[in-house]
Design a protein around this nucleic acid. Structure first.
Lengths: 199, 199
DNA sequence: CGTCTATTTGAATGTACTCAAAAGCGGTGG
DNA sequence: CCACCGCTTTTGAGTACATTCAAATAGACG
């Protein structure tokens, strides 16, 4: 809410990747942000609640998952520094969220509230473009992931993941990666063994 | 492009599900549409080309697929009357499409061109909301489908699909449904046999 | 240090795939 | 209108990938 403007460096950089803002617009944008800190294991959002915020991750690591009928967690998205995370469906529609989002590490986020979001789009229409790109990127990412499930073996999916996000291997616990890939932890453990042997 | 206004009934209904237009706005919207007819097996879009249009399906049936390295088709989306279909990523970004879209039956579509789309959003900003909902729905649909791959067996996915779109069973060839589910045609055939036996 | 949870390992099982061949079906030309 | 061609679907046999359940080992944290 309050603004040590230095701290918003990362999010301004992120926005600058897609649209160009004037100094005044930057200031206005930052004035709408609030800082949210989470301890490890703390929930950011629980399925069933309405997601009133979208958030940018300044530091830390989170996971967004879906709980199936049998109570299994199915990880839909990870988030690290520099990524956006939220339940966009709920944020835009005002309907209850289907995702649960939880910090895997101590994290610091920047949040924008739904009403402020509308104000922002109204005053700085360039952000329409920005958020459309964000949504469209999320959509493409899911599409790609879906295709990799339609196409390939678990091992291919795992190697793709490592190639794209090498950091995950050390930073994210095996069982979460297994859930993301859609395999059992036991099987991922065996895959890793096989892969290290081969080298 | 030309306007026997009766024929746009279906698309206006579709728009009315999310936003309310005045008569003048409806007229303007329809003036931006062009009618596209496709014969069975005709391409609407080929991967590599830029998708200059988004389209609404007035009649017919299409499929959007991704071609993997081995030349296998992986169906990402079906489209029937009343649905929107396109490669939104390419449409918005201007980058080459990754999807190929093909008519499975003789079809009639209404298209909106990228420039006209921008004009529309500019003149009738309500459409911002409409297309955001569309994109967000597509995103949610992919998310759900991803989760059903992470969670369940091929049979569960097949039953889910039938429950949601009973029409598919008669209307869409087995091999396309198999591709959508991410199984071989042989296996889907066996599944069907098993399921009819059980009754 | 002890407790709790995560990971690894093992054995048995099931789900889905590959390859090959037969049967069905739709369209086309004689 | 029938016969044939090409393509889709079905069936069969053998195999590979991934799961389940159980138990052992290793790590993390108070």
């Amino acid at each position: 809410m309050k603004t040590n403007s230095e701290s918003f460096h990362s999010i301004l950089n992120n926005v600058a990747k897609h649209i160009t803002l004037t100094a005044a617009e930057k200031k206005f944008f930052c004035s709408l942000l609030r800082v949210k800190k989470l301890r490890k294991r703390q929930y950011l959002l629980q399925a069933g609640d309405v997601s009133r915020f979208e958030q940018f991750i300044n530091t830390g690591a989170l996971r967004a998952y879906y709980l199936d009928e049998k109570g299994h967690e199915r990880i839909v998205q990870f988030g690290l520094e520099g990524w956006w995370i939220g339940d966009m469906a709920s944020f835009f529609s005002g309907l209850p969220a289907t995702l649960t989002i939880e910090a895997m590490e101590e994290s610091e986020l920047f949040q924008i509230e739904r009403n402020d979001f509308d104000v922002l789009l109204d005053k700085v229409p360039k952000f329409e473009r920005f958020f459309r790109i964000l949504l469209s990127n999320a959509h493409i990412a899911h599409q790609r992931r879906l295709v990799s499930h339609l196409t390939g073996s678990a091992q291919e999916r795992y190697l793709e993941l490592l190639a794209k996000y090498p950091a995950f291997e050390q930073r994210i616990p095996l069982r979460h990666i297994a859930s993301y890939l859609g395999v059992t932890p036991e099987f991922l453990s065996r895959m890793r063994k096989r892969l290290t042997k081969k080298k």
